[in-house]
């Protein structure tokens, strides 16, 4: 667009605002020189342009900032921390597994007690033998009188229910005691008893088996060294059949006692529950496999074998 006397004001303002290119500026200057009467108006517009004044903001320290130093943790420290955390977690896991394995496993409310006899208990158990226990409930007796295979005897005893207990040799029973009122187990030694497990390992597990929700009562006493027995007993009256299999002498039984004492919900009707400890040769497993025609479940093959069965009568 060419500057003329009609649109000159716009060009004057653009000139003063420094929005024209050099060629346009020259054109405005040329127009002004050719139109002297408009120079006054140009000067008036030029006076509207403000002259910058100097102002100082003080103090500027109000505005200055410093970068906050962020603490940088060296990578090796992170590694050390991770290693420590891993050790703690690993220790916790191991301890929890040990504690878990040390407790009586109770599945589905079914009752079952298994317990190892410690050497201490072996020495103390005979003193604990109390014939009066036989009057309180089922007594667990070594089955010295039979030449039958152990598992067969157990099956028969179980089927016989309450009549399976042998009473004559109660003094040699295990000193284990489990009853419904306090769910306690008192271990008793019988180092020679291992028939039920079906293996020849003298350190086979102790197994107690109970039918029904009634208390499982296992008694033990001084054992006979040559006993080849199946310890099966039935509680009098309403009590159910109980089967106990000798535990190895080197197993601590206190944990199981405590666990059993604390747990009130481990029994149920029409059930046989089994917990076996230290059954490395799977003798107990074989026995119950014959008994129930089922393969026991192995929840912990290394230290504890836990098998739970439910049998319909």
């Amino acid at each position: 667009m060419e500057i003329n006397r009609i649109n000159y004001e716009k060009f004057f303002l653009l000139y003063l605002d420094r929005e024209l290119n050099p060629a346009e500026k020259q054109e405005v200057e040329k127009f002004l020189s050719e139109n002297a009467d408009l120079q006054k108006e140009f000067k008036l517009l030029q006076q509207t342009v403000l002259t910058p004044q100097e102002f100082v903001f003080e103090p500027k320290e109000l505005l200055f900032r410093k970068e906050e130093k962020r603490r940088i943790i060296p990578f090796y420290r992170i590694q050390v921390a991770a290693a420590i955390a891993g050790l703690i977690l690993g220790s916790w896991f191991i301890i929890s597994v040990i504690i878990k394995n040390g407790k009586l496993d109770i599945s589905g409310g079914q009752s079952m007690v298994a317990k190892d006899n410690s050497k201490e208990n072996l020495s103390k158990a005979p003193a604990k033998n109390d014939p009066s226990d036989q009057t309180q409930g089922a007594s667990l007796q070594p089955d010295n009188s039979t030449s039958q295979p152990a598992d067969k005897t157990v099956a028969e005893n179980l089927n016989a229910g309450k009549e399976t207990a042998n009473t004559q040799e109660s003094k040699t029973n295990l000193n284990n005691r489990v009853n419904k009122s306090n769910q306690s187990v008192t271990p008793g030694p019988d180092p020679s008893a291992n028939i039920v497990s079906g293996d020849n390992n003298p350190e086979s597990a102790l197994v107690a088996v109970q039918k029904s929700s009634k208390g499982l009562e296992v008694q033990s006493g001084p054992s006979q060294a040559d006993a080849k027995h199946l310890m099966v007993s039935g509680q009098p009256a309403k009590s159910a059949a109980v089967l106990a299999i000798k535990a190895p002498p080197n197993t601590n039984t206190s944990d199981y006692e405590n666990a059993l004492t604390k747990d009130q919900e481990y029994q149920s009707d029409n059930a046989i529950s089994v917990v076996a400890l230290n059954d490395p040769n799977k003798g107990i497993s074989k026995f119950f496999k014959k008994l129930t025609q089922r393969t026991p479940e192995e929840t912990n093959a290394r230290q504890i074998r836990v098998s739970v069965f439910q049998i319909s009568y």
């Binding site: 004044q53 100097e54 100082v56 903001f57 200055f64």
Partner: peptide, 11 residues
């Protein structure tokens, strides 16, 4: 930026 423009912005 503070040094260069604080005064101008204040003005």
């Amino acid at each position: 930026c503070v040094k260069l423009y604080a005064d101008g912005l204040y003005r």
